[in-house]
């Protein structure tokens, strides 16, 4: 069986990481793009051997092209299919995997070839462990490995696949603004975020002082915005809140639930201040202070002012 890999792309996020993982197998890599010409060109420059492209009509969601792409996958019969967790990309993956008869594995962070076998590392139990799985079947993986910059090289050739949509079974009716980023937290280079470790709304000025010293926007965990209502809802970070990628994320009194961590997957440097040394957030943080935030925050403000 060939070891060829198809990376299914519907948006620019995590393309570098997926292509790097595919490259690591040492076999030909095709990027299959459903989207705009600009997206296809961006992907072509990021290191695949070939790009196949289905041009998307702006009024038709990517998912409508799933059967078309699956047919192309069946013809090429790649050993490995890769998508990100993005909903549209996963729909392409599921359609292709079902027709290809692939094993479908979630939360894959790394893969390697071992003779005829594929050895897959997948994150399990909410990221607490990595499982090593092995298979000799074709596989389709949902990739969640660490993001890497895509190399900029000479672009691969782009081959167009005609869309030939049957009927518009799926269409966009309308788009409504969903609150957006009026808080500025999404675009901020630095974010100071508070969780239930803060005891009272009256303590927020303390946090604001630290945010000012850092030139940071204020964010929070979901319960602080939702249950307590201390901070506006467009500032909570996580799976169902803002997905942010700041240069610096400072989590104060946040335990690090997986739903929260999903929102800061792309943050560069994560700092955690938590009184519980076993808080899950210390598993992902780059720096941590084990301590009472009521002591640590004023000390941080002072340290930023003097050093």
């Amino acid at each position: 069986m060939s070891m060829d890999t198809w990376v299914l792309v519907t948006d620019a996020r995590h393309v570098g990481a997926m292509l790097a993982a595919a490259r690591g197998l040492g076999t030909p890599v095709t990027a299959a793009v459903v989207g705009s010409r600009a997206l296809a060109e961006l992907v072509a420059a990021a290191g695949p051997d070939t790009v196949v492209w289905v041009e998307q009509d702006a009024q038709i969601p990517v998912e409508a092209y799933a059967a078309r792409l699956a047919a192309a996958v069946v013809l090429a019969a790649p050993r490995v299919l890769i998508s990100s967790t993005a909903p549209a990309a996963r729909v392409l993956l599921g359609a292709a995997a079902a027709r290809r008869g692939s094993v479908v594995l979630p939360a894959v962070v790394d893969l390697a070839a071992d003779g005829d076998h594929l050895v897959v590392q997948r994150s399990a139990v909410g990221g607490a462990v990595i499982e090593t799985l092995e298979t000799s079947s074709p596989v389709a993986i949902v990739f969640t490995g660490e993001d890497v910059e895509a190399p900029v090289g000479s672009p691969a050739a782009i081959e167009t696949i005609p869309a030939d949509l049957p009927a518009s079974d799926l269409c966009l009716i309308r788009t409504e603004p969903a609150g957006g980023d009026s808080s500025g937290v999404r675009a901020a280079a630095r974010v100071v975020s508070v969780g239930r470790g803060v005891k009272s709304k009256a303590d927020l000025p303390l946090i604001e002082e630290l945010a000012a010293a850092l030139g940071a926007e204020i964010g929070c965990s979901m319960p602080v915005a939702d249950d307590l209502g201390w901070i506006s809802k467009d500032r909570y970070v996580g799976r169902s809140g803002q997905h942010i990628a700041p240069r610096l994320y400072v989590a104060l009194g946040i335990s690090g639930a997986p739903q929260h961590m999903e929102g800061i997957r792309d943050a560069k440097v994560v700092v955690a201040v938590n009184s519980d040394k076993d808080a899950p957030i210390f598993r992902t943080a780059d720096f941590g202070i084990v301590g009472d935030l009521y002591e640590v925050v004023p000390a941080l403000v002072a340290a930023l002012g003097t050093t």
């Binding site: 399990a124 092995e134 000390a299």
Partner: peptide, 23 residues
């Protein structure tokens, strides 16, 4: 059609923890 070779702790980049005196 997959076999499980077992699990291990993630090779986390070592978090640098500062503790003790807050200042």
């Amino acid at each position: 059609a997959v076999s499980n070779r077992g699990s291990h702790l993630p090779a986390t980049k070592p978090v640098r923890v500062f503790d003790g005196d807050p200042t």
